[in-house]
Structure formats: structure tokens, C-alpha cells
């Protein structure tokens, strides 16, 4: 009996917290549903931060609009999320950063057919023409810009190692675009390995590469979280002067290093998680502005150098 009481108490606490999380406005003029991946690694953490910040700002600015934010741990959960957004919250517009393109294409198309306005952010759907607005991240661009910098800096020759992310389409696009340019030069990719966009894996894989290769000219870590692990492994054996590291995305700690003119991390390449903010803002603007705001917006991957690092510096961001 006592045990059942404790169980009930726990459920009650959960219920109270659950309701606190979703303020329901009965008389909302419009409801915007936002579906994003949960913060499973640094970059998606940034996406969550910017989504929450933007929603907070817009709630204040547009008291008549209702915003509902749903985060999913995987594609299946994201499908459930958008079904619930439509069935329970009757959303008028959906802003989605899809986990994966293929599984989410049909569920999003279904909402579109029900008359929901669709904005897709970052990854495109598997079929064109479903979305009304597309705010695209440039994954091949990230690979290309990184390769261009490396080729230029190494004069088209040298030995490099590559640490990739999680085996996904995004990772393939970045890697393929990078390799396409590098293959045309005398730069030799000694080996590559997945480091799962994760600092610990970056550290361990790099330690082993340092054991295995006597000479490395550069490391393409592809992601700033991985890069931080890589830097620690290089420092540990004192080989900082031998090589440089190119990360990606634009994490606070790395931007600070670039700004300070660190030799080991001379540059990084942007892939800003705040593109979700652009997606939400543009969608709201579409309904608020008399001019027809529609179409494709590309958030370019840019080379971040000591000169322009200030523009990419958001010290409050958790990423």
C-alpha cells in the first residue's frame, strides 16, 4: 500500500512537470509546431538552445501565436512527434529539422496534404516540392571549404588523417565533397575513422593515429567537438608543431582559439546550429509579412579565420 502511494506520488510529480512544460493557449491565432532532434551531441545541443531561445523571443513578440517544441531521440520518435503535433495541437505550420530524410518524407507529406505549412531546415526531404520554405545547411560545402583551406595551406602535398562523424548521410556528403577535391592533389589520406562527433572518441582515435604514424601534416576532424579531443591527444605527446587541425561547426571554445590566433587550430568552418532559428523566424515572418516569403534559403558553410571569428562568436551558446 505504501509502495503504491510512492508510485502514485512519482506519477503525480511527472504529470505536474509535464503540464508545466507545455503551456496551452486556448485562443491562439496560429500554432507553430517545431520538431528537432534531441540534444544527443554538441551540435544538436546547439540546435536545442537556439530553438528554445527563438521560441522564447517570439512568444514575447507575438502573444497571439502559440509555439510547441518537440524533441526526438530518433527518426521513429520524430514521426510520432509530428503526428501528435498535428492530431493534438492542430498546428498550422511545421518547422522540422529531420533526423533522416527518407523515413520522414511521407509523414511530412501527409501533413502538407492536410494543409499544414511546411518549413524544412538543414537536411532536405527525399522528395522535392513538399516544403514551402527550405532553410538549407551546406554539408558538401563544409567538406569543400575545409579541403580548399587544407590544399592551400599544404601547397597540395602532405600526409593527413581524417576523423569522421556518425555514419549518416550528412557525414557522407561532407566526406565525399572533401575527398573529391583532395583526390586531385598529392595530399595523402593516411587513414580515416569514425569519431562519432564526440570528444572522447576524437581523443582516443587521435592517440592511436599518433602511435601509428610518425609524421602527420594535418588533421581534418570535421567537427569542433572531435577537434577538442584531437588537440588534447596532440598536446599530450607534444607534437603541436608538427600539424594543424581543422574542425567544423563553430563551437565557442574553438572560435575562441581561432580568435586568439592559435597555431594548432588556425581556422574552423561554420555549420551553425542557429539555422533552426532562421527557419522559425522566416516561417513566422511568412505569416506576419504582407510580402510572400517563400523558397530556398541557404546557410553557407564559411571559413572562420581570426579576421571574421567575431561574427561567429556566441559565448552564451552551450555549443
Amino acid at each position: 500500500m505504501k509502495k503504491a502511494g510512492i508510485g502514485l506520488l512519482i506519477l503525480a510529480v511527472i504529470a505536474v512537470f509535464g503540464f508545466m512544460g507545455t503551456p496551452v493557449r486556448a485562443e491562439a491565432e496560429m500554432t507553430f509546431g517545431i520538431s528537432i532532434p534531441a540534444a544527443t551531441h554538441g551540435w544538436t545541443g546547439g540546435v536545442n538552445y537556439w530553438a528554445e531561445r527563438t521560441v522564447e523571443r517570439l512568444r514575447f513578440k507575438y502573444p497571439d501565436y502559440n509555439f510547441i517544441l518537440a524533441t526526438a531521440e530518433g527518426p521513429e520518435e520524430q514521426i510520432n512527434d509530428i503526428e501528435d503535433l498535428y492530431a493534438i495541437h492542430n498546428i498550422d505550420a511545421l518547422i522540422i529539422l529531420p533526423f533522416e530524410s527518407d523515413p520522414l518524407t511521407n509523414p511530412v507529406r501527409y501533413l502538407k496534404e492536410q494543409g499544414v505549412f511546411i518549413t524544412v531546415v538543414d537536411r532536405g526531404l527525399a522528395e522535392e516540392g513538399i516544403e514551402d520554405i527550405y532553410v538549407a545547411g551546406d554539408n558538401p560545402g563544409l567538406g569543400r571549404v575545409s579541403a580548399e583551406y587544407m590544399i592551400d595551406r599544404l601547397d597540395g602535398t602532405g600526409d593527413i588523417v581524417v576523423l569522421r562523424g556518425i555514419p549518416t548521410l550528412i557525414d557522407d556528403q561532407r566526406f565525399d565533397a572533401f575527398m573529391e577535391l583532395v583526390d586531385e592533389t598529392d595530399i595523402n589520406v593516411l587513414d580515416w575513422e569514425y569519431a562519432h562527433w564526440n570528444r572522447d572518441d576524437g581523443y582516443e582515435v587521435m592517440q592511436d593515429y599518433l602511435t601509428r604514424f610518425d609524421h602527420i601534416d594535418a588533421v581534418w576532424a570535421q567537427d569542433d567537438d572531435i577537434a577538442l579531443g584531437v588537440i588534447e591527444a596532440i598536446r599530450e605527446v607534444g607534437r603541436e608543431d608538427e600539424m594543424f587541425v581543422v574542425g567544423g561547426a563553430g563551437m565557442v571554445e574553438i572560435i575562441e582559439r581561432v580568435m586568439a590566433g592559435d597555431e594548432l587550430t588556425p581556422v574552423t568552418v561554420s555549420y551553425p546550429p542557429d539555422m533552426i532559428a532562421a527557419g522559425i523566424e522566416i516561417t513566422v515572418l511568412h505569416f506576419d509579412s504582407p510580402s510572400p516569403i517563400l523558397g530556398e534559403f541557404i546557410i553557407a558553410s564559411e571559413l572562420i579565420t581570426p579576421e571574421n571569428a567575431e561574427d561567429f562568436y556566441f559565448p552564451d551558446s552551450p555549443f
Binding site: 534531441a38 540534444a39 554538441g42 544538436t44 545541443g45 546547439g46 536545442n48 538552445y49 570528444r199 567537438d225 551558446s317 552551450p318 555549443f319
Partner: peptide
């Protein structure tokens, strides 16, 4: 931990 880190690091 995700909550404490605001989803980040």
C-alpha cells in the same frame, strides 16, 4: 545531464 548542460557541453 542534458538538462544541466542546456543540451550542450
Amino acid at each position: 545531464v542534458t538538462y544541466l548542460a542546456d543540451g550542450g557541453t
